[in-house]
């Protein structure tokens, strides 16, 4: 039994200037010393370590799985990442090399990144990922249909994919860089949540701009409104463009001040990123050794 799609004609308009000012406020918070270290470790633990390239090989995925479990063995007390994120054809490899480490395997699906294919193929794509053992599926919405106003199409598609996911958690990528306005972002978030998304996610990482703080705030607000109405929690995953520890901390501040502590763990919040982990490790390295760190001492992939 699915909830009804949101009434698109009564969607609340977003005050863009207000959103940007609110975001600017988050960025003034000063987080230092122990709280900074705690925040950085939390952010590390929330990362979906990602490789989504045409040139991905078994070796690259294998190396990424190793890195996910051993971010920096020479530093003390470094957590593992939350998951690794790969294309469906690499799920088997990832599953095998992560073993029982507790790190999840997320797979993109549904003709990622464009989403330009038919429903049957998208469902097959999803099934392939799930059958190979993916714990999480990252689907893309059909932005073309959305921008044409075919909201029911988008809703039905998400609902169909959700069904195909079975036990796997579904992350719905809105690709906000292609949605052009914050009103669209809010509407797409509402549709995705109503259609059964476990997570909503900003971007594929293939389109600029990817995740930005204003867009993420609008999505967090949609999650909050849904929670206030139904008591059901939805996860959030900003992805793409979050490459420094400083920005990651700003996102955590925004998460805390919008949704609160219940969301401050990797079951409800993820960063989709590839270079963020190393930047955070450099900060932890500085804290532990006293000297500014170099990426020479960290693996590239």
């Amino acid at each position: 039994m699915l909830p009804l799609p949101p009434n698109v004609h009564h969607a609340s308009p977003i005050d863009q200037v207000g959103v940007e000012e609110r975001v600017a406020r988050f960025n003034t918070r000063s987080i230092k010393k122990e709280s900074k270290m705690q925040g950085l470790k939390m952010a590390l633990n929330m990362i979906d370590l990602t490789t989504l390239e045409g040139k991905d090989t078994v070796g690259k995925v294998q190396q990424l799985c190793y890195k996910a479990q051993h971010l920096a063995d020479h530093l003390l007390d470094v957590p593992k990442v939350a998951a690794i994120c790969v294309y469906p054809n690499h799920v088997k490899t990832a599953k095998k090399h992560l073993g029982n480490s507790g790190i999840k395997v997320a797979s993109v699906a549904t003709a990622f990144p464009s989403g330009n294919s038919n429903r049957r193929i998208k469902l097959l794509d999803t099934k392939m990922a799930v059958d190979h053992g993916a714990d999480e599926v990252d689907m893309v919405i059909s932005r073309g249909e959305f921008l044409q106003g075919n909201y029911n199409f988008v809703y039905d598609e998400i609902a169909a994919i959700k069904e195909a996911c079975g036990m796997a958690r579904l992350k719905v990528i809105l690709e906000t860089g292609e949605l052009s306005t914050l009103d669209h972002v809010r509407l797409a978030s509402d549709i995705a949540i109503a259609a059964g998304a476990d997570f909503i996610k900003t971007s594929t990482g293939k389109i600029q701009p990817a995740a930005t703080m204003p867009v993420t705030l609008v999505m967090l607000q949609a999650i909050k409104d849904h929670f206030d109405r139904t008591g059901i929690m939805i996860g959030m995953k900003p992805a793409g463009g979050i490459s420094t520890a400083k920005i990651a901390l700003q996102y955590l501040v925004m998460l805390y001040e919008t949704l609160g502590t219940a969301w401050m763990n990797n079951h409800w919040f993820r960063f989709g990123a590839s270079s963020l982990a190393n930047d955070i490790l450099m900060q932890i390295g500085k804290e532990q050794t006293g000297a500014y760190y170099s990426s020479d001492y960290l693996s590239k992939d």
Partner: peptide, 8 residues
């Protein structure tokens, strides 16, 4: 000290 100790 920072100019001398920076690992990069």
């Amino acid at each position: 000290t920072h100019m001398a100790s920076h690992m990069d």
